[in-house]
């Protein structure tokens, strides 16, 4: 549905997007994930038509759209700061794209009604954006983006301005809406948890390039590079070597890994456990209470490993503990 073929974009000396190749399947929820300045928003803006690529092709629905202005692309977009027209009511905002299309007023009313029902905003038609909460404003923005019946929905960090509780609530709703409408969706975020929860596939970006493209499970469990391993989820990269199917660091560790050669063993906190006779021995240096669990930091031979424990019997700071390793863990090759 959306294809980017060798797309490049630079601003002066800065290369914002450096030869990106991506393909979004129809009905897919696709996320561009990465830290600030990695080029994810520029990539989204290239699809929207707010930026023109210096090289490469952008295709929507098989059609090359490089020279097509945003208003002629079959897209809907939700902005980070909602971008609702402050001088229009909720009804006016959602009706705006429909009126531009020249639909008769009765049809406009019917469609706006359906859209507001879809985003649970019936009864708020007459309110102005400043009279709405952040979550409600974002729902209006979503309804407006869907009004044109776009082929592709673009979402630029739509939840980042909301507080945690509403963010989680809207996240579920976004997923539901996307499933219901079957709309191809390109989502931009720096929040890896959001990306993992929502996406069918994720492209992790760094310095204008796609570092890893895969399903959330692949990204989390088999990160392609140390950067992806460190950026997605919590974990510690232990430098060493993969040899004959086992991880080696001074001595062989009882952890099965895929691949050969120097690299990093990725140890996630939920995969480590406190265990009598565990393979590693270390000292507890920090315990952080996180509500549903306690995250322990244990120093082991110059490394600080993180271990998640149920909140209950937690070892005291300075206590010596033994850590049991997972039978199998992701191994990330060193970057060349």
């Amino acid at each position: 549905m959306v294809e980017l073929l060798g797309v490049r974009k630079r601003y002066g000396e800065v290369v914002a997007v450096d030869g990106v190749d991506l393909g979004l399947k129809e009905g897919e929820f696709f996320t561009l994930l990465g830290p600030s300045g990695c080029g994810k928003t520029t990539t989204l803006r290239l699809v929207a038509g707010f930026e023109a690529p210096d090289a490469g092709e952008v295709r929507i629905g098989g059609e090359r759209v490089n020279a097509l202005p945003p208003e002629r692309r079959p897209i809907g977009m939700v902005f980070q700061n909602y971008a609702l027209f402050p001088n229009m009511t909720v009804f006016g905002n959602v009706a705006f794209p429909l009126r531009l299309k020249g639909l008769p007023e009765r049809e406009v009313r019917r469609k706006v009604g359906t859209l507001l029902e879809m985003v649970h905003l019936v009864g708020l038609e007459g309110r102005y954006p400043k009279e709405l909460s952040g979550g409600q404003q974002q729902r209006v923005a979503l309804a407006r983006a869907l009004a044109r019946e776009p082929k592709v929905l673009l979402l630029d960090e739509p939840l980042s301005a909301l507080d945690a509780k509403i963010r989680e609530e809207l996240r579920g709703e976004l997923k539901r809406l996307q499933r219901e409408t079957g709309l191809t969706t390109l989502y931009v975020t720096h929040d890896q948890e959001e990306a993992l929860a929502l996406s069918d596939r994720i492209a992790v970006m760094r310095e204008g390039r796609v570092e890893h493209l895969g399903t959330p499970r692949e990204i989390y469990e088999e990160p392609a590079t140390p950067f992806v391993a460190a950026f997605v989820g919590t974990g510690v990269l232990v430098p060493g070597e993969a040899r004959e199917g086992l991880f080696h660091r001074d001595r062989p560790w009882p952890v099965r890994v895929k691949g050969e050669g120097p690299g990093f063993l990725l140890l996630r906190p939920e995969r480590l456990r406190l265990e009598e006779g565990g393979f590693l021995e270390g000292t507890v240096v920090l315990a952080t209470y996180l509500g549903s669990l306690v995250r322990l930091e244990v120093e082991v031979g110059g490394l600080v490993l993180k271990v998640d424990l149920p909140p209950g019997r937690v070892p005291a700071l300075g206590q010596r503990v033994r850590l049991g390793l997972p039978e199998e863990a992701p191994f990330v090759r060193e970057e060349r």
Partner: peptide, 18 residues
């Protein structure tokens, strides 16, 4: 004026004059 408002209008199908 926030540029996003204009961008939002473009995405909604408005021409530069609109």
């Amino acid at each position: 004026l926030p540029r996003e408002l204009e961008e939002a209008a473009y995405v909604d199908g408005a021409t530069p004059f609109q």
